[in-house]
Every structure is written in structure tokens, then in C-alpha cells.
Amino acid sequence: MTHAIAYGATALIFLVMDYIWLAHVAGSFYRERLAGLMAEQVNFAVAGLFYLVYVVGIVIFAVAPALRSGNWQDAALYGCLFGFFAYATYDVTNLATLRDWPVVVTVVDIVWGTLVTGVSATAGFLIARSFI
């Protein structure tokens, strides 16, 4: 039950933060730099699949170890690391394989992925721990 609570809390925090980032903070940043690569409409089914799977990763690799250790710092550290490696894999691969992929998008996206994953993992841990 603790892991289900961790998943729900982590997912909620991640979704809210990512929505604010994409819709209200950095949406124009991405549109201006990736206009030729972006689809006209978001495929919400595929986006939903990403969120479902990615949050499982956050819980397995960041929240669960923190629940075992009892330290929120583990959730923050492992969450940041998971976010860094996941977003770096995506962005650096795009930088290596896509024509005109902007370096600035790579840097900003990796920083964002590190931050949002670390915060989500920490919040997921704190909320789940409060139910133990």
C-alpha cells in the first residue's frame, strides 16, 4: 500500500509541475526552438504512457530506496540522478541524431528533468512516509 501511495503522490506532483512548466513557463521556449519538429497536436495517449512508466521509474529508483533508508535526502538525490540520466539520454540522443536540435534545449531540458524528478521523488517519499 505504501508504494501505491508513493506512486500516486509522485505522479500528482510530477504531472502538476510538468504541466505548469510546459503550458505556462517554457512552452514558448520549446515552440520557438523546435517548431519544425513538433507535432501540431499532442498525442495524449502516448504522453500518458510516458507519465505512467516514468513515475514507476521514479518510485523504483528513488522513492523506494528512500522509504527503506527513511531519509528524504535519498529520495532527492536518487530522484535528481534518475531525472538527469533519463532526460540526458533523451536530449543528448536527439542532439546526436536530429538535424538542428538546439544545444540550449538539451541543457534546459536536462536541468528541468533533474529538478522535476528530484522534487517529485522527495514529495512522493514524504507523503508516503506520512502514511506508514
Rank of each mutant, 00 (worst) to 15 (best):
Y19K: 08
G57C: 04
L15F: 07
F29S: 00
V53M: 12
G36I: 08
H24S: 13
L49H: 03
A62P: 08
R31M: 08
P65C: 09
N43T: 15
A39H: 10
D18K: 02
F61N: 03
F61T: 00
R31C: 12
V59G: 01
A39V: 11
D18A: 03
L52D: 01
F14V: 03
D18Y: 00
V46E: 12
L34D: 04
L52H: 04
E40Y: 08
L52Y: 05
M38F: 03
S28T: 11
F61Y: 09
I58T: 06
G27C: 12
G36H: 10
F14N: 00
A47C: 10
H24A: 15
A64R: 14
W21R: 02
V59Q: 02
R31P: 13
A45M: 12
F50S: 06
F14E: 00
A47E: 09
V63H: 01
A35N: 11
F14Q: 01
A45R: 13
Y51I: 11
G57D: 05
A26T: 13
Y54H: 06
A64D: 14
F61V: 00
V42G: 07
G27T: 08
E32T: 09
V56I: 12
H24L: 15
V59L: 02
M17N: 02
Y19P: 11
V16P: 00
N43G: 15
A23E: 11
A64K: 14
V56E: 01
W21M: 06
M38P: 07
R33K: 09
R31E: 15
L34M: 09
I58D: 03
L37A: 13
N43D: 13
V46C: 10
G57T: 02
V25K: 06
V16D: 04
